[in-house]
Structures are given as structure tokens and as C-alpha cells.
Computed example of a mutant assay.
Amino acid sequence: MELHDLKLMLQKHLTDGLVTIVGSGLSCAEGLPGMGELASHLDTTVIPGLAAADRDRWTAISPLISAKGLEAALLEVPPTPGLETAIVTRTAELIASRERQIVAEVFSRTRTLRFTRLIKQLLKPQTGLPIVTTNYDRLIEVAVEEAGLGVDTLFVGHFAGELNEAESRLSFCREVTLRGKQVQYRYRLRANVFKPHGSLDWYHRDGKPVRYSGDLDLPRLIITPGLNKFRNGYESPFDRHRERANAAIDRASRFLVIGYGFNDDHLETHLTPRIRSGVPTLLLTHTLSANALKLVAECPTVIAIHRAELGGIAGSSVHVAGVETFFSGLALWDLGAFVAEVLEP
């Protein structure tokens, strides 16, 4: 395949009915910690302040992390409630600290997020651009606002904002007109951001989920790797965001998948079957996970682009309908390079 033909194919993919799935790979590309760094951070910070039983449980988990990875270790040896709370706290601290540095650069105009550049090139439906992310950080929200769009997260209010889907949607209404007997609403262009694993700005207050953008010395509502993913995923606000994410996936005409490994059970019950049914999918990632490799091999409607080397020269490997092509010197798997090479004039 020639590069020109590939670019035309990729441009045609990003049309109506697009749902974007964002995994941790995009956050890592911007400088947030990956699973390996998170595991190391937990290993050095989680023990202080734990009760004896919680320390013993971490002692059993810790050796498994280097051998099997953090999530597999937590699944094999479930954390105690006290240890689970400590893991959530330490995870949030690390991600929030790194996020602050990145957001400060964006605020001072010394950095443009990759996702901001992408959003500027996508079609913006009046109902909102659906984005599903398993990430806790707020870089997607920041990137969308930097591109000039509003962000609908189903919460309303700045201080202890409440989860209220209808109020959140109506807050973007800019005009109401009556044509005959029909009422028409005009909304601000926006992205609908669904976060089934939670967000750094979600807390509990009086037994209800609230959103507060600052840092509080309180537990944040995030689902960390391990067994609590299955339990907490069915509590508010995770349940509503998961339902809206799955509904968007079910309606999608095509997918753009960025830095996501197809390893999340909450999404896979809807996402993978839709892709297997023939929904056109473009996958950009540094490395194809085992599940992603299987999808690419079995689904001819998946275009996958990942990092590769040939003869010691780095480039991009592109899988289209069972044919793999290497493009030397091009990092098309990286969202920033993809936008520059394929979408920007």
C-alpha cells in the first residue's frame, strides 16, 4: 500500500457516527505514569500506615507484581478493604501530581495536548462527540476545552457538582425556537465524556457522588486494577457512565481506538462484539496487546497501526485486511504524528 492511499483511507474513516475509545496509552504518551511505574510507586509507598493484616496481604501481593503485572497480582491475591483504600489513595496521588504538571504547561500555553489537535479535525455532531475513556485523569476534558468545545461529564456545578444527566445536557442549550408545533433546541458544540472507571475529581459527599476539581484529602471515586473493578463498577456514578459508554458503543458507525488494549471487562461486553460484527475500527497504539492482536487477525474491518522496527529503523506497522505494511520513519501510531501526517493541512 502506498502512503498516499493509506492517508486517504484513514481520512475517510473519521466521519459520521464515530465513537472514540481512549486508553492509558494516550495518557502515558503525554507523560502520565503507566502500569509499571504505578506498581513501583505502590510498592514503595503503600505500606506506611497500614494495619498488620493489610501489610501482610501486600507482602503476599508484592512479589507477584513483577512476575505477572499489577492487575493480575491483585486478582490472584485480593486486597483487604484497608489495603484497597490505600491503593486507591496512592494511585490517585501519583496520577494527580503528574497531571498537575501537564495541565500547568497547557495553561501557560507551552504545551498542546495531542487530543486537542485531533478534536479540531473531527466532525462535531449536534448531540455531542462521544468519547469513552478508562483513564482517571482529566487530560481528555482539558484537551476538549482547549479545542473550543464544551465537556459534558453528566455532572452539574463547580463545587460538589451533582450527577444529573438531564441538567448537564440542558446546560449546553443556547437557543430554543418554535417552528410550527415543533420545539427546536440549539446546543453548544461539545464532547460527551464517559468514564466508567471514575475520575480524579469524583468524591463522595453525604452518600452521593459529587465532582470537585480541586484536591481534597478524601478518597476519590476511581476503580483501581483488581477485583474492585467488578464490584465498584456497578455503583453510582460508575454505573451511569458505563451505561452511557455502552450505549454510545452500541450506536457507533465506526470506532477510533487510541492506546487501549481491549483488556477491560466493563467495555468488552459491548465493544469487542461490535467490532467483530464488522463495525469499521481504527486502532492506534504503541504496542498491540494479545487481545488486540487477536482482533486484528480475525476482523478484516480493523485497521491497526503500531510501532515497529525493520533493519534497526523505527517506523509504523499498518495492518489492513490481513496485509501488514511497514512505513519507515513515520510514527503514525502516535496520535500527534498521526494528526500531523494525516489530518492537518
Rank of each mutant, 00 (worst) to 15 (best):
M1H: 09
D5V: 15
L6G: 04
K7P: 03
L10W: 03
L14Y: 07
A29S: 13
E30Q: 14
L38H: 03
D43M: 13
V46C: 04
G49D: 08
L50Q: 02
L50D: 00
A52V: 06
W58D: 01
P63K: 00
E71T: 06
T80P: 01
G82L: 01
E93D: 15
L94H: 05
S108H: 12
S108E: 11
T112Y: 01
Q121M: 09
L123M: 12
T127Y: 10
P130A: 07
V132Q: 02
T133N: 00
T133D: 01
L139Q: 02
I140F: 04
V142T: 15
V151T: 06
V151L: 08
H158E: 14
F159M: 10
A166S: 15
E167Y: 09
F172W: 05
F172K: 07
R174F: 04
E175M: 09
R186H: 12
R188C: 12
R190E: 01
P209R: 07
Y212C: 11
D215R: 10
L216Y: 13
L218W: 08
R220W: 04
I223H: 03
N228S: 14
R242K: 14
E243R: 13
A247M: 11
S253M: 13
L256F: 05
L256E: 09
Y260N: 05
T269N: 09
H270Y: 12
L271W: 06
I275F: 06
T285P: 06
N291S: 14
L293K: 12
V302F: 06
A304L: 07
I305C: 07
I305P: 00
H306I: 12
R307Y: 12
G315D: 03
S316E: 03
S317V: 11
V318C: 13
V318S: 06
V318M: 09
G322Y: 03
D334W: 02
V342N: 03
